[in-house]
Design a protein around this nucleic acid. Structure first.
Length: 666
DNA sequence: TTAACTGGAAAA
DNA sequence: TTTCCAGTTAAC
């Protein structure tokens, strides 16, 4: 039996060898350099395969191929065709060319290599983000060019940017093929999707493409509508993950074929193969949605800035908030400020501060405290006579977590120790994990029976406001029930940060509740993030509207909001972070693994001399994390050392260590 | 998955 | 010293 198996294996081997010898290889450039989709870091290099004559035409650079790799069939991309190989042994032939479409351009292949290096990951991981899964039916359809040339209205574009000190010069540079780079901070109420669309139109009028990245699908839809309006139909595509595989691939092909040269999309679009790229832009770059959650965790802003440098394009980093990273671009002189004039800002919105800091913290669990101060009520009431009003409340749901009102011990379910939460005004608290109602809760620490809600959700805020304004319509927008738009009729719109609907004509008033809650988060970016969220809500107001933030008026973030000086806040943030050796003046990387593997990784790691290793500190699932920190100038060396670590560890089959360069949170 | 390589043990 | 074998490694 065993004998037979061996004989048949030997025969199969002979057959294969005979076939290989018999199949003629291509006459011109018989070698294909292939990027193989292998999961191991140390295999992230090019491999040469011979090209059978039958595939010589199809195996162009950029096409997908199937190859035999270490016994398995593996996917790969042809990077180039060459006359000879440096590989000593005989080359395995390509097995199959998958489709005729060159989906990996040399530009994107180079970019993927740079992104992989920067984030200490593999090119294959980056390309999984860059190239959507193939959809054969979509590949057969040709991309139809736009029926009419793109519109270019220099006056309309100038008008859209007129409120900015250097807006016209920026547009002119785009139009003339220049590479201006700016950190953009518009006034509240600015129709930023339209401004972006005009920037793309100016770039296209000069013969170049644009790549615009925004945080989420709603923003993509807004910019897409503005592009359609400004450029005319058929000149741009919107790339989002939610589009579905066929549409996603079809739109990707429209870009990779060069038929559409203006692209708006979410984070993965930063790697889109736009032809003749002239402008990269990222909007609201502080939004954590722009940080990719899959390895190697690239951030869309950083990918776009790498592209701007590699491809010599213009760059626009904008938002109503301002990140320390954007401020750092100004500080180093890499970008210039592009700001709304002070006169415009003054005309748009007045931001006031109401209430003392601790009112919200001390109120009782049924919300009878003065969470919405009288002054704020007055502003809402006045606003409701003009149109819709927006109320931002930090967290979704009725009430997040409950605590003992005497000793502040968090309430735990007596049955399963899960967190308790209120689900309605007259019902007892319910466990979030096992859904058991806690009929008569007693604090295990102090024996108290009273509950307090440290966080009030949007549903209860809506309920409270419904009582306060009985004649007004009250709607909520949060979590999985996000409204994209509301009309111009008077109504109260309660929304969580990031879920604020756009109001037709803008909100007549904006109220920001529980501001202390955003500021109390234990996070490196808590302040910047709070200011960003408030700013995005205030920016939805109509010209002449009033905004009220219920917060401590002395807090620097609150003051920056009132003055609409987010870039100034970001500048101070840069200073503070430099003193604390935090990004962007420093480069951080985190390593997460089982304690043993982490120990071992640290002995293998050869970081630049100035590196500090902080930790290890325990994280979830019994794993530990260390943070490695270097001055920014040594960031490249740190990335290289981390990449080398991953290659060595994968070659030796050691336990995996998760490496994140520039982790968005710590 | 599997050919090539390594090193250790048995045979000469 | 040579040969054989099992386990390891690299992977075109």
């Amino acid at each position: 039996m065993r004998q037979e198996v061996r004989v048949s294996q030997a025969r199969a081997r002979e057959t294969r060898a005979r076939k290989a010898a018999a199949a003629a290889t291509a006459e011109v450039d018989p070698v294909a350099r292939v990027l193989v989709d292998a999961p191991l870091a140390h295999l992230d290099r090019d491999f040469d395969y011979s090209v059978p004559a039958s595939m010589s035409e199809a195996a162009r650079p950029g096409v997908r191929v199937k190859v035999r790799f270490a016994g398995h069939e593996a996917d790969g991309y042809v990077l180039e065709r060459t006359a000879s190989s440096a590989h000593g042994g005989t080359l395995t032939p390509l097995r199959r060319v998958v489709g005729a479409e060159p989906v990996l351009s040399p530009v994107v292949a180079g970019l993927a290599a740079e992104v992989a290096e920067r984030y200490a990951g593999t090119r294959a991981d980056v390309l999984r983000l860059a190239v959507p899964p193939r959809h054969a039916a979509a590949e057969k359809q040709p991309t139809v060019p736009a029926a009419e040339p793109a519109r270019w209205d220099a006056q309309a574009a100038a008008a859209a940017w007129a409120d900015h000190d250097t807006g016209e010069a920026f547009l002119r540079h785009l139009r003339e093929g220049g590479a201006p780079r700016a950190a953009w901070h518009p006034a509240p109420g600015t129709d930023w999707p339209r401004s972006l669309a005009h920037a793309a139109a100016a770039t296209l009028a000069g013969g170049r493409g644009s790549l615009l990245c925004v945080p989420d699908g709603r923003d993509v839809a807004r910019v897409s509508a503005a592009l359609e309006d400004v450029l005319g139909p058929g000149h741009h595509v919107a790339l989002t993950a939610e589009a579905g595989p066929a549409a996603r691939y079809r739109d990707f092909l429209a870009v990779s074929r060069g038929v559409r040269r203006v692209v708006v999309g979410t984070r993965a679009a930063a790697l889109a193969p736009v032809h003749d790229l002239g402008l990269v832009a990222v909007w609201d770059d502080g939004d954590d949605l722009l940080a990719e959650p899959r390895a190697p965790y690239p951030h869309a802003r950083e990918v776009l800035l790498l592209r701007a440098a590699r491809e010599g394009t213009a760059a626009l980093v904008g938002g109503f908030g301002a990140t320390a990273e954007a401020a750092y671009l100004l500080r180093t002189g890499w970008a210039r400020p592009l700001r709304a004039t002070r006169a415009t800002v003054r005309d748009r919105v007045r931001v006031e501060v109401a209430g003392a800091t601790d009112l919200a913290r001390e109120r009782d669990p049924h919300g009878r405290g003065a969470r919405v101060p009288a002054a704020a009520h007055a502003v809402l009431r006045a606003g409701l006579e003009q149109g819709p009003v927006l109320v931002q409340t930090p967290r979704r749901g009725y009430a997040a977590a409950l605590a003992c009102d005497r000793c502040r011990t968090p309430c735990r379910c007596p049955r399963c120790t899960g967190p308790l939460a209120l689900v309605g005004p007259l019902e007892p608290p319910v466990c979030r994990w096992c859904a058991t109602p806690a009929q008569a809760w007693t604090c295990p620490e102090c024996g108290g029976h009273g509950l307090r809600a440290p966080v009030v959700g949007d549903v209860r805020t809506a309920e409270e406001l419904g009582r306060a304004f009985p004649r007004a319509r009250v709607r909520t927008s949060a979590g999985d029930r996000v409204l994209a738009h509301v009309d111009a009729t008077p109504q109260v719109v309660v929304a969580t940060p990031g879920a604020e609907p756009v109001a037709e004509g803008g909100y007549a008033a904006v109220l920001l509740l529980d501001a202390w809650l955003l500021l109390d988060r234990v996070d490196l970016r808590a302040e910047e993030e709070a200011l960003r969220r408030w700013s995005n809500a205030v920016a939805l107001a109509r010209p002449g509207a009033r905004a009220v933030v219920v917060a401590d008026p002395a807090h620097p973030a609150v003051q920056a909001l009132v003055r609409w000086d987010q870039p100034g806040h970001a500048e101070r943030e840069v200073d503070q972070r430099r003193e604390a050796h935090l990004p962007p003046s420093s480069r951080l990387a985190s390593l997460t693994a089982e304690p043993g593997a982490l120990d071992d990784a640290l002995t293998l790691l050869a970081p630049p001399g100035s590196a500090e290793v902080l930790g290890p500190a325990p994280v979830a699932d019994g794993r530990e994390r260390v943070v490695v920190r270097v001055p920014r100038g040594e960031g490249v060396a740190l990335s290289r050392a981390l990449g080398e670590l991953q290659r060595v560890r994968s070659a030796r089959k050691l336990d995996p260590v998760r490496v994140q360069v520039d982790p968005p949170t710590l």
